[in-house]
Design a protein around this nucleic acid. Structure first.
Lengths: 336, 336
DNA sequence: TTGTAGGCGTTATCAC
DNA sequence: GTGATAACGCCTACAA
C-alpha cells in the first residue's frame, strides 16, 4: 500500500494525496474527503523509510543504555521508561542501543547510519569516548550526567554534590557530629563516574564546613553489598550516628543490616539519602531524602528536541536540585 | 556522505561500492581495498532509510511495552533489557512503543508505517485487541504470554500453572496442609491477565489434587501491598503454614510483615515462589523458587527472527518451565 | 485547485 | 570484473 495506490483509487495525483495529508497546500474539501475515505478504508499510513529518505530526518531518537550484562539499576530503568514516554508525547519513537564502550556495532549503526535525529546518552563517564564520537559526527545529543568539560555539551543532571551536602547539613542541624556516606561502588568511583565522585565531593566539603567527622564508604549496587557495607560501618566506626546515601539499590540491605543489629531508626541512627520517592517510601521508617525526580527523562527529551530544532543554539544544561523531603528517618543525634 | 561520493573518490561506479560492501558479487581485491580505504577515511556507513526503502526491511524490531504511567515491574524491565541485548547480537535495533490499549499513535506508527520488521508484544491479555490488529496487518509478531486461543499465534511464556503447582506439591511433600497463594493484583486478575489467572488455576488444581486447603489472595505489585496482604493472611487464616507466590514486587513487603509478626522462615512458615533469581537471593532466608529465566527476551527475539525469515511457517510456542531451586525458605510443616 | 517530474541513497538487473 | 540505470515511496518545486 503506497501513496500512488491511494491516489489512483481517489482519482487524483500523488501530490494531491501528499498535500491532503500534510496540509501544506489547500485541497478542496471534496477531494480531501474522497482521499480521506480511501485512506481510512485501506488503513494507509506513509512509509516511514521513504519519508525519512526524502526529508532527511527520521522522527526517532536514539537512547544509549548500558549493556544489560551489567544489570540495570531501577533508577536507570525508570529513566528509560520516562524517555520513551516523553518522546511518544512528541510523536517521536525511541531506538535503544545497549552499548558500553565505543566501537560498538549497534552504537555505530545508530550514530552514523542516520537512523536517528538525535541521541540521549546515559551513564556518562567524566572522560567519555562516546561523547567525542558524537561531537565529531555532528549528530545532536544530550547526556544524562556531564563530562569533565561540561561547557560544550548539552546535558541534564542531578546536583549530587549539593544534594548530599544538604543531607549533611540537615543531619548536622540535628546535632550529628559523625556522619557516614554510603556511595556507589569502588569500580564506579575509580572509573570516573560523575555522580559517585560528586557525591563524595559534596559530602567532604559539607562535612568540613560544619567541622564534622566524615566516613565515606563505597558500596555495590545491590542489597547484599548494602548489608555488608553497613556491618563494616558499625564494626569500624561504631560512633557514627548518621548516614547519608546515594545508593538506592543497596538500601534494602542497609535496612536488613540495621534490623540485625537491632538499631532503631532514627532513635539510634539517622539516615538521609538521594533516592527515588518509591525507594524512600518503601524504607522503614520512610526515608528523608532528596527525591530523584521521575521526569528527568522528559527533560532530556525536551532538551534534545530543542537542540534538533535549533542546531546552532548555545549549549543548555539542567542541573536539578530537588528539595529534601522530610520523612521519618532522621532525628536528633542520640545523647550518649 | 553517500555511496556516490565513495564511488567517485575510489574511481568506480556506485554499484561496485555496493557489491564490495555486500559481497554479493566478486570484486577484485585491488578495487575492494581501494574502496575500503576511502570508506575508512570518510567513516562512511550506508544510509539506513535508503536501504530500508530499497530492501523493504528495516532490520529493526518493535517492542511494545506497557505505558510508563503504570510503573514497570522489575521483571518487565529486565525483559526489555534482554530483548534489546538479544536483538543487538543479531544486528537488529529495537524500537520501543509504550502503548497500553489499541489506537495508540506510537503503536500505529510502528505497526502500519513499516518502521519495523516484526513486533514483540508484552503484557498480553487473554483477549487482546493489539493481537487482532497485528494479525490483520500481517506484520510478524511474537507475544510474551498468550491469548485465549494460543494455537494461531507465536509466543513464549512461563508455565505459571505448572510452576505454582510444583511449589504446592513441594510444600505438600513437606507436610503442609494449609497453603496460601499470593497472586498479582485484583485488577490484573479481573482484566484477564494470563499469568495471574494461570497461577490461580495451577494452585487450585494442585491443592485439590493433594487434598489440601488453599487460600488465594490478590496483592498489588509493591511492597506496601505485600505487607498488607501478609497481615490480612495471618489475621484471617492463622492456620496457614505455607505460602506460594508469583508476586516478586510484593516480596519485600511480605518479608517486612513476617518480621513484624516475629515469624521465622521456614520454622513457622514456609515460602516458595515463582520469582527471578536475584529476588529469591535477596530474600531472607533465600527463597526456594522456580527461577524466572533471564533469557526470555532472547527466546522471543529468536522466535521473531525465525518468523520473519519464514513467514509461512506454522506457529511456534515456547512454554518455559524452569526447575524449582531449593534454597532455605521451605521446611517441614510445624507440628503444633 | 490540481498535475508533472525530479531526486533523496540504496540495491539489483541488465549489459558489456 | 565493472558500469549504467531503474526502481523503492515520498515530498515538493514548478507548471498549468
Amino acid at each position: 500500500m503506497n501513496i500512488g495506490e491511494i491516489a489512483r483509487r481517489a482519482g487524483v495525483s500523488r501530490s494531491t494525496v501528499s498535500y491532503a495529508l500534510s496540509g501544506k497546500r489547500t485541497v478542496s474539501a471534496e477531494t480531501r474527503h474522497r482521499i480521506q475515505a480511501v485512506i481510512d478504508e485501506l488503513d494507509y499510513r506513509p512509509n516511514a523509510a521513504a519519508r525519512a529518505l526524502k526529508e532527511g530526518r527520521t522522527r526517532t531518537l536514539g537512547l544509549v543504555i548500558p549493556p544489560a550484562s551489567l544489570r540495570l539499576t531501577d533508577m536507570q530503568l525508570r529513566f528509560v521508561a520516562s524517555v520513551v514516554e516523553a518522546a511518544a508525547r512528541a510523536d517521536f519513537d525511541v531506538l535503544l542501543s545497549p552499548s558500553g564502550g565505543d566501537h560498538d556495532r549497534s552504537f555505530e549503526r545508530i550514530v552514523t547510519g542516520r537512523r536517528v535525529d538525535g541521541v540521549i546518552l546515559m551513564e556518562i563517564r567524566l572522560e567519555d569516548e562516546r561523547v567525542n564520537r558524537l561531537e565529531r559526527t555532528g549528530l545532536p545529543f544530550v547526556t544524562i550526567g556531564h563530562t569533565a568539560n561540561p561547557g560544550r555539551t548539552w546535558w541534564v543532571d542531578l546536583d549530587y554534590a549539593a544534594l548530599v551536602a544538604r543531607c549533611v547539613h540537615h543531619l548536622a542541624d540535628l546535632g550529628h557530629r559523625r556522619i557516614a556516606l554510603i556511595n556507589r561502588s569502588t569500580e564506579l568511583v575509580a572509573a570516573g563516574y560523575g555522580p559517585a565522585q560528586r557525591a563524595l565531593a559534596g559530602f567532604t566539603e559539607a562535612v568540613h564546613e560544619r567541622g564534622l567527622t566524615g566516613v565515606d564508604l563505597c558500596c555495590g549496587d545491590d542489597p547484599a553489598s548494602g548489608e555488608a557495607c553497613l556491618e563494616q560501618l558499625l564494626d569500624r566506626h561504631p560512633d557514627v550516628t548518621a548516614i547519608t546515601t546515594v545508593n538506592e539499590a543497596a538500601l534494602h540491605g542497609v535496612q536488613r543490616g540495621l534490623d540485625r543489629a537491632h538499631l532503631v531508626v532514627p532513635r539510634d541512627l539517622s539516615i538521609a539519602g538521594v533516592v527515588a520517592p518509591h525507594w524512600a517510601e518503601d524504607f522503614r521508617p520512610p526515608l528523608t531524602a532528596a527525591d530523584v525526580p521521575t521526569e528527568m527523562g522528559g527533560h532530556a527529551v525536551d532538551l534534545l528536541l530543542e537542540r534538533i530544532a535549533t542546531p546552532d543554539a548555545p549549549p543548555r544544561h539542567l542541573l536539578l536540585r530537588p528539595p529534601v523531603s522530610l520523612r521519618s528517618s532522621t532525628g536528633p543525634a542520640p545523647t550518649r
